[in-house]
Amino acid sequence: MTHTQSGQSVLDRLSPEVLSRLNRFAHDHDYPAGATIIREGDDTHFLGVVTTGRVALRLRVPELGDRFTIVTCEPGEIIGWSAVVAPFRATVDAVATEPTRIVAFDATALRARLVDDHALAAELLPLVLESVSGRLTASWQQMLDMFGSRGPEPW
């Protein structure tokens, strides 16, 4: 398992015991730039953490010129939270914008483990929730389009 280049990774915030249990069904995946990692609407096959590179989360909006990147996942950040949140279906396309490595935890195995391993669940799920919460509040900010033109100026 690879750690991030800068900043604190989600992985760094897990205890060694939980990390070692997660490692049993962890796999490093490497993606070239441009590779689609997750496709919107598909089942989400893993919960991952970006270790190097960058992943763009995109929504398809044909009327507006196809795909919009709404957020990027940077090293240390969770990708694929829908692997542990019903209905376990991807909400966006995830595309590597540069060579990217992700440590991925198999969705089916992880969900089963979370049912039995309460200590793991107690450590991991708050981090997933934190990630989702951060994306939610970021979306609010983006929805405000604060940097955009806000209407007629008095001068």
């Binding site: 990027t72 595309v95 900010q141």
Partner: peptide, 25 residues
């Protein structure tokens, strides 16, 4: 640098400005 939204041609960071602190606080 981050942008609030981007098309597929943009390879840089997308997200709100406070997310930039994550990498270099």
């Amino acid at each position: 640098l981050t942008v609030d939204r981007a098309g597929p041609e943009w390879l840089g960071r997308v997200g709100i400005i406070t997310e930039l602190f994550r990498g270099a606080k």
